[in-house]
């Protein structure tokens, strides 16, 4: 279980997150939705250790994440796919994927090979392009590559930041369905940050709605999806 307790984060005088608390169940997709600037990305960056919280606690499977470096947090099974199809453009597709498993390449040689084979199975298009530079891929392929890089670390918790950003609806659907299938087959826990609330809620089990740094709703996704008052107040549709 991912537990976020009373997390406050501020930069200088700007408070990005004000006392956030919620939990994400194992094996489920929890989505954090909200408008631009609600603090969604900050939340993910706190969990993966890229940013430091002012106060509060974050626990993954009982272990505290706050204060740990991103390098250590990856080793605890938490993989973060940051916003904007974060791949390293001058490296090849294969190198981008290999990079995600470097830290366990020596201790777990066979499993790394297996994991790389699995992501190629998941996204066959990447295998076709494995010797191409990541910079030559389409937006959708880059997103797949970024997710693959995270998956070869064999995470138990996957943090996805705006995977739909700038992608065609069909591609988004394909990526989201793949993730959903992965959750069901492997018990992967997913924390999905999305601005595109409709897509996110359609696939998620649970929804958390952020507005200007605070949680305004925390309920099962279908319920949130049906709540038209909530939708019109915070999501504007």
């Amino acid at each position: 279980m991912l537990e976020i307790r009373n997390v406050v984060a501020s930069y200088g005088s700007v408070v990005a997150l004000k006392d956030i608390s919620f939990t994400a169940e194992i094996g489920k997709i929890t989505t954090v939705i909200g408008a631009n600037g609600a603090g969604k990305s900050t939340l993910l960056r706190l969990i993966s250790g890229l940013e430091v919280a002012t106060s509060g606690a974050i626990h993954w499977q009982g272990e505290s994440l706050l204060g740990k470096s991103p390098e250590s947090i990856v080793r605890m099974g938490v993989a973060h796919v940051p916003e904007g199809h974060a791949v390293i453009a001058p490296l090849t597709v294969a190198e981008n994927i290999e990079m995600g498993a470097l830290f366990r390449a020596r201790s777990n040689k066979d499993d790394v090979k297996l994991a790389i084979g699995e992501v190629y199975e998941l996204f066959p298009r990447l295998e076709e392009r494995k010797n191409q530079l990541a910079g030559t891929l389409s937006g959708g392929e880059r997103q797949m590559l970024a997710i693959s890089r995270a998956l070869v670390s064999r995470p138990s918790l996957l943090l996805l930041d705006e995977p739909s950003l700038g992608l065609a609806p069909l591609v988004v659907e394909q990526i989201i369905e793949t993730i959903k299938a992965l959750c069901i087959s492997t018990g992967l826990t997913v924390l999905l940050v999305e601005q595109n609330a409709n897509t996110a809620l359609s696939v998620a089990d649970h929804g958390v709605l952020l507005s200007i740094g605070s949680v305004v709703a925390d309920q099962p996704a279908p319920l949130m999806r049906a709540d038209s008052a909530l939708r019109s107040a915070y999501l504007g549709y």
Binding site: S48, L50, E71, A86, I88, L91, S153
Partner: peptide, 14 residues
């Protein structure tokens, strides 16, 4: 990777 994009490198466990 570290030279090109330290953030993604760190997130990869480097």
């Amino acid at each position: 990777a570290t030279a090109l994009n330290p953030e993604v490198a760190r997130l990869s466990g480097i």
